[in-house]
């Protein structure tokens, strides 16, 4: 049914439901499963109203955040490799505006469907980032499935 499924996850409880659903569908249809992790563009605003630090200190902070996000993505990738054992896998990392990067990646790999977790009333611990449907939907190159 599907040749290529794009799974968007950061490992949050909502996204884990999407992981399970995407895994099942990939196993059933023999599709390639591409997993995308996006380094949220909003991190660039997280130096807020800091004005005291030197550019060196700010650069150190930026590269430290990047390292931290990458190590979190490494851990996620490691877990998913074990969980998705036997599947044809591909891991993608992007940085930028979530909606834009997700749609761009879906188009690039020729995804048949994008799978993601549902909106959770209580947000999972971690960087709070919610995309906006009105930004995402007009850009989608393929159907979007929200795992309940």
């Amino acid at each position: 049914m599907f040749k290529r499924i794009l799974l968007a996850t950061h490992g949050t409880p909502g996204a884990r439901k999407a992981e399970t659903l995407a895994e099942n569908w990939a196993r059933q249809s023999g599709a390639e499963l591409a997993v995308i992790s996006i380094f949220n563009d909003d991190w660039k605003h997280m130096t807020g109203d800091d004005w005291l630090n030197t550019s060196t200190a700010r650069m150190q902070f930026a590269s430290y955040v990047e390292d931290q996000v990458n190590s979190e993505m490494d851990a996620l990738e490691q877990r998913l490799r074990e969980q998705f054992d036997g599947l044809e896998l591909r891991f993608l990392r992007r940085s930028g505006v979530i909606e834009n990067q997700l749609c761009k990646a879906a188009e690039e790999i020729g995804a048949d469907i994008v799978v993601m977790g549902a909106y959770q009333k209580k947000q999972a611990p971690g960087f709070k980032a919610r995309f906006e449907n009105r930004q995402l939907h007009p850009q989608l190159p393929c159907p979007l499935l929200v795992a309940p």
Binding site: T47, F61, Y64, V65, Q68, G126
Partner: peptide, 20 residues
């Protein structure tokens, strides 16, 4: 404030969620 957080986060190895 934020300036001190930016300066100290790499030193104490703060996690992303903690910094945010």
């Amino acid at each position: 404030g934020v300036s001190a957080t930016v300066a100290c986060a790499p030193v104490v190895r703060a996690r992303c969620s903690e910094m945010a």
